[in-house]
Design a protein around this nucleic acid. Sequence first.
RNA 1: GAGGAUGUAGCUCAGUCGGUAGAGCAACGGACUUUUAAUCCGUAGGUCUCGGGUUCGAGCCCCGACAUCCUCACCA
Length: 504
Amino acid sequence: MAKEDPTGGAALEAARREKLRKIQQLGLDPWGGRFDGHAPIGQVRAREDEITVEPVGECETGKPPEQSGPKVRVAGRIVLQRKKGKLIFIDIRDWTGQIQLFIGQNQVGPTNWELAQCFDLGDIIGVDGELKRTKTGELTIFAEDLHFLCKALATPPAKHHGLADPELRQRMRYLDLIHGEGVLERFLRRTQIVQSIRGTLAAEGFVEVEGPTLHAIAGGAAARPFTTHHNALDIMLYLRIALELHLKRLLVGGIERVYELGRVYRNEGISPRHNPEFTMLEVYQAYGDYRTMMDLTEKIIAGAIRATGQAPRLAWGGAEIDFSLPFARKTYDEAFAEHSGVDPNDAAAVAALAEEIGLEPAGKHPDVVKSEVFEAKVEDRLAGPVFVTDYPASICPLTKRKAGQPEIAERFELFIQGMEVANAYTELNDPDLQEELFSKQLAGQAEEDSMAKMDRDFIRALRHGMPPAGGLGIGIDRLVMLLTGSQTIREVILFPLLRPEISG
RNA sequence: GAGGAUGUAGCUCAGUCGGUAGAGCAACGGACUUUUAAUCCGUAGGUCUCGGGUUCGAGCCCCGACAUCCUCACCA
């Protein structure tokens, strides 16, 4: 509804639309088009040493020394504008950097000068000019020709503050990327990390596959799934909560080194460390075991740190994490004793501690109680990086038991800053034992916490023989958090889940 | 799901004791050909998140709703 007097944002937009009209009157397209031959601003800045200063005489007062520099062409978004009479200084930015433009009325000619009057913050322009320095030494493109590439109708956020409201930053991530300090760099670094992981795995001979995201049975982890429906088949389906069971089918099928790096979905709470959809890496290696996976985990993480050009000691939220190899290793019982102060094999003492910290141990399997105490008392204190090994077998239904110690599972979890970053098993390949474990839910365990979901097809696959194997899962978002100094998962996910905006 | 905090101009934020809504940036008009968050003069811009209530009078107090953030729970 238009008001009689344009007010607020409407007035700002009206001013921009008026300039858009003027651009059209100049015979130019305010929405631009193909623009060839421009160089990334970062590369242009690197040509600074090509500028030559004429050594002729003293410079006259007020006049810069005669220089000549390379002719360059760039394109970018206007982020700052300083008008000074018949002269305009503009800072434009692309995804490699930012540079100043010098636009003088006498230097660019009447049409370009008219065009420059129509520039607003946020517009995208192209420039031809000569790379030189101003009197104050600022590297600057002295414009000779201007090209209009896109009008911004909406006003960008305050030029030096960017967006402060975390909701707006996530909802309008495009603005956050333009104006947020280090935001674009952080997401590009995420890409570097993911590329590095793929490179490490390729170098080790693994192949990447794409499993189904729609599952008839949501298996492979203990989590509540999202449900959906297929119309033609009229069946209920789940969005996958893990990659595990299909990758293991591929081990049966002879893909001996296989991984998937993709999205999984869990219908659970949202927190600084949880988003309902997140990126998971799962890797399976035939004829390996959990120790093989430990070495691989170290290679993957060390490679990712190298790829981001960082040293192995990283600052994170006031702490320093030392990623130097090898990472520390502790057994589950050692970590338990150290941080809870209770003997992990003394079930009564563990139960007493559970009672003390408000858990309700009565009627629960002792290993469930132990696991709950571990999560409550121990995990947060594992600054790491530390591999915690040898978990109670009863809480690991997809894991092979230790030879001669059936109560211990060949499993490790990698903890860093209290976060579980990786989880690996020597994979269980005994179909009879797997079937038994699928059907057994431990006493006191909530249904959604249990992996007791029978996947008959998976059992059938195991009956055809899955080679002994090591399997590894890495939470990519959390790893990226640690390698980018991000305290919340929302800083490393481009579009985290938000409630839909109420439409007015 | 529970508790706490927040919501004011396009953006960033003030707003005292309940008494006519404020600043900076952005915008508009003017001056300025080497500025660096340019400067200077002037103008305009508001459903104070929404809905009730108390009051002569509410941005402010009370109740409710919505959204976001934090902590906890669930989880990786």
